[in-house]
Every structure is written in structure tokens, then in C-alpha cells.
Amino acid sequence: MTLKKVIARDLRLALRQKTDAATVVLFFALTAALFPFAIGPEAAILLRIAPGVIWVTALLSVLLSLERLFLADFEDGTLELMFLSSLPLELVVFGKVLAHWLVSGLPLIVATPLIAILYGLPFAALTVMLPALLLGTAALSLIGAIGAALTIGARRGGILVPLLVLPLYIPVLIFGIAATDAGISDGAIKAPLMILSALLLGMLFVAPLASGVALRQALE
């Protein structure tokens, strides 16, 4: 088993089940389209809330898609075989998260311009928002992987993951919004984007480690 094989296998599985990835994007678009109904169609208010709505719905979409990250492989025993292979479990986690982000995080970013049109966001704002979302969703996937790994085999695992993970999502949300708001108002974008990158790099180290420990004790 190599890292490339883990990623390729998960991508192949995801491409066979195209509806899974499509569901996440649809959830994202539909939820984001729900807010104007709740708040009213005033353009000024919609423009003001757009970054927050897009970030929170993207965050929830990532969260919902995470539940199956390890569970299917755990249930049919694949995870155990991966654990026994020569590849360290941390790298398996990294590969699976990367593949997961490619099929469910990246489509969110592709769909974001459409939602930006619905909210009347200027296209100039996207030049900051899309890179911020790129860094942010990757960090969210990594943090979420810890929650998914910890809740394998738990009762009510599905509802437990948000409870564990949402408090940890707050920094990513804050700096994602800060970068996006700064992009819209021509503020200083460098600092929040750099902090977002720092969060991503930090999680790139912490998440595979913590998920690895969690998976090991689930497989024991």
C-alpha cells in the first residue's frame, strides 16, 4: 500500500458514486439559497451577510460529508488491512482526507461563484474568498477527520461529530471571514490569509497524528 494508492482508491470509489459528492454541493447551494427567504431580498443586507452565509454553509457541508470518511472502510474491514500494511496509519489518514477534500471540498469552491451571484457579491471579492476557502476547507476537513476517527464505533456517532468538532472550527471560521471581508472592503488581506495558512499547516501535522491514535484504539 502506498500513499498514492490510498488516494487513487478513494478517488475511484468516489467517482463511481458520483451522487455522494454531488449531494454535498447541492446541500451547500440549497442551504445558502435558503437565507434570502428567511431574511428578505434586500440587496444591501444580502451583500453584508454573504461572506458569513457562504462560510458557515461551507463549514456545515464539510462537517456533514465527514461522517463517512472512515466509517465505510472500518465496517468492511478495509481500514484494518490498511492498518496492517507497511504504510503508517498517519499517512493513510492523510491520503484519505486529501481524497475526501478533493471530492467534497473542492466542488464547494467551484460552486461558490454561483452563490456569490445570488448574493450580488462583486467578482473582485472572489479573488480573496476563493483562496481563503481553499485553505479553510482543507483545514476543516483535517480537523473533522479527528472527530470522524474518534467517533468510530460510538453510539450516535453522526450527531456526536459536530459536537466535538464545531468548537475547534471557530478559528478557521473567524480568519476565513476576516480574509473575505477584507477582500470585499479592500482591507488588509495578508494577515488573515497567512494565519489561515498557519492553521492549515498546524492541522496538517496535528490531525493525522490525533486521528491515527484514535483509529488505532478503534482497531484494537
Partner: peptide, 19 residues
């Protein structure tokens, strides 16, 4: 919540410790 989410208490201990 994680501490109490497992049938075996030892799993709950470990998971909650990582968290």
C-alpha cells in the same frame, strides 16, 4: 459526550483523552 458514547468504557477513555 464522547466519554459516554461507547459500549466499552475503555474506548471512551481513550477517545476522550485524544480529544
Amino acid at each position: 459526550a464522547l466519554m459516554g458514547a461507547f459500549e466499552e468504557q475503555s474506548r471512551g477513555y481513550r477517545a476522550a483523552a485524544v480529544l
